[in-house]
Amino acid sequence: MGDMTDRFSLLQETIFREIQNAENVEKAVFTLRDGYSLGHVTYHLAQTIKGDLHIDSPFVRTTYPPEWIAIYLTRSYVTVDPVIKEGMRRSLPFDWSELEPTEEAMKMMVEFHAQGMGEFGYSIPITDKVGRRALLSVNSKPGERNWSKVVQSFRPDWMDLAHVLHKKAIIELFGDEDPVPILSPRELETLHWSAQGKDYKEISAIIGISEHTVRTYMRSARYKLNCANMSQAVAKALKLNLIDL
């Protein structure tokens, strides 16, 4: 058993280096697929940011064949895909056998298998420090009979590598200048109440800290958001989906 654990650790280390050195996320998902002898691998970042605008435009990289991608897009299967729906709601990894697909989703899965894809899968939700949601999904090869053992053996590897892929995607999208700053819970809380139209005194009473401290949190949030005034800071936080109304 010790030899098997060592072998798995060595495999993870090798794939980790190969993913880091991959030219882009597209090459990296193929590296993950081939390294673990999987059917397919998909990385899905739910929303991307361009400039100061929050845009619901997913960043997806997959090893699925173009024929299936074309069918998936043409028939708008993303609106019924149970893996995506559950993956963007859940915080813990899940096996596809746990899902209860709708009738529309069942039709999608039937066509999915008809296109030659394996019937088993496992998905790992990712939420980073600024609340971005992503999903790494791995799919079995057709005819796989030991999927539960495969998942049990490699799940820790995949969970670690999911975050490596996510970091690579963020760098690919934004380089070293990630447009979403990391704000503290208190900074986000004061921005939220400011967006509700509350002034410093009212926010102080609501969250139970001094008015001076409220001003301090809001000032630091404004600096992190690179805004000239609080109105701009609140508007930018809303656009970046850091707070809601």
Score class of each variant (00 low, 15 high):
residue 3 D to P: 00
residue 3 D to M: 09
residue 3 D to V: 12
residue 4 M to F: 11
residue 7 R to S: 09
residue 14 T to Q: 14
residue 14 T to A: 06
residue 18 E to M: 03
residue 18 E to V: 03
residue 20 Q to S: 09
residue 23 E to Y: 12
residue 24 N to H: 15
residue 29 V to Q: 01
residue 30 F to L: 02
residue 30 F to Y: 11
residue 34 D to S: 10
residue 35 G to P: 02
residue 39 G to E: 11
residue 45 L to Y: 02
residue 48 T to G: 04
residue 48 T to S: 05
residue 48 T to L: 01
residue 58 P to G: 07
residue 60 V to E: 04
residue 60 V to W: 01
residue 62 T to A: 07
residue 72 Y to K: 08
residue 74 T to Q: 13
residue 80 V to G: 07
residue 85 K to F: 09
residue 88 M to F: 10
residue 88 M to T: 10
residue 88 M to D: 09
residue 88 M to E: 06
residue 92 L to A: 13
residue 94 F to Y: 12
residue 95 D to E: 14
residue 95 D to F: 05
residue 96 W to E: 10
residue 99 L to C: 11
residue 101 P to D: 01
residue 107 K to E: 04
residue 108 M to V: 01
residue 110 V to I: 11
residue 111 E to W: 06
residue 111 E to D: 14
residue 112 F to I: 06
residue 113 H to S: 14
residue 114 A to G: 15
residue 115 Q to H: 14
residue 117 M to K: 03
residue 120 F to I: 00
residue 121 G to N: 04
residue 122 Y to P: 02
residue 122 Y to F: 15
residue 125 P to I: 08
residue 127 T to K: 14
residue 132 R to Q: 10
residue 134 A to W: 03
residue 134 A to D: 01
residue 135 L to T: 03
residue 145 R to D: 15
residue 147 W to C: 05
residue 153 S to I: 03
residue 165 L to H: 05
residue 170 I to T: 06
residue 174 F to L: 03
residue 178 D to R: 09
residue 179 P to R: 04
residue 180 V to E: 01
residue 180 V to G: 02
residue 181 P to Q: 11
residue 184 S to Y: 05
residue 189 E to C: 08
residue 190 T to Q: 01
residue 192 H to M: 11
residue 198 K to D: 06
residue 203 I to P: 02
residue 203 I to H: 00
residue 204 S to Q: 05
residue 208 G to E: 09
residue 212 H to R: 10
residue 213 T to L: 12
residue 220 S to E: 15
residue 225 L to G: 04
residue 227 C to N: 06
residue 229 N to E: 07
residue 240 L to D: 02
residue 242 L to I: 13
